[in-house]
């Protein structure tokens, strides 16, 4: 193993967060109890519970989108690590270059339940979302995007190793 070049000596965004937290400013630490303009809680009834308990891609897509027909597409870009540094926190993001995207889902095919998360994307919101998911073991991760009613996807194999120095 050799060292790599192009190092970041410090992380500016990290500094920003630290400074914001320390100053208690807008970047914003908010406590619900204190925030006056708090929005109403979302309705749990809209939750697609059935889609979250499926064990295959087809069953999950059927439950979530009403169809399991999906096409792999270069218009869906997905970013996930080759090797997850820890299965508990795996950054996964997608970016779809497609019109009328209304929904998206991230699947981890070898997780106990296939669907990790899903999003309803209203008009005006860009079909590009980053989040962090858990992977139980090495698995194919699939980003599915619903565009004009059709499903398109990108996928990537993510290797999960045992944390050697827990």
């Amino acid at each position: 193993m050799t060292e790599i070049e192009g190092l970041i000596l410090s992380a500016p965004s990290r500094r920003t967060v630290l400074a914001a937290v320390a100053a208690g400013t807008a970047a914003g630490l908010m406590r619900p109890a204190l925030s006056f303009a708090a929005a109403a809680a979302p309705r749990a009834s809209s939750y697609p519970a059935k889609a979250f308990i499926q064990h295959s891609q087809d069953a999950t897509l059927q439950a979530m989108f009403g169809t399991s027909s999906v096409t792999a597409s270069a218009d869906v870009k997905m970013d996930a690590p080759d090797i997850a540094e820890n299965g508990a926190v795996v950054p996964v993001s997608f970016d779809a270059n497609a019109p009328k995207v209304t929904a998206a889902a991230i699947l981890a095919l070898d997780n106990p339940f296939v669907m990790a998360c899903a999003y309803k994307i209203p008009e005006g919101t860009s079909p590009a979302i980053a989040s962090r998911i858990k992977l139980g073991k090495t698995t194919k991760v699939v980003s599915v995007v619903q565009s004009g009613g059709k499903l398109m996807s990108a996928s990537k194999q993510v290797k999960v190793t045992l944390g050697g120095c827990g």
Partner: peptide, 26 residues
């Protein structure tokens, strides 16, 4: 400003202390 810009549906496979990043027009 009161209008929904994103709805997320999360399952147990979303990491502890979840993080999310997205953008919208306007």
């Amino acid at each position: 400003k009161g209008k929904i810009v994103l709805t997320g549906y999360w399952g147990p496979a979303v990491s502890k202390n979840p993080f999310i990043k997205f953008s919208f027009k306007g």
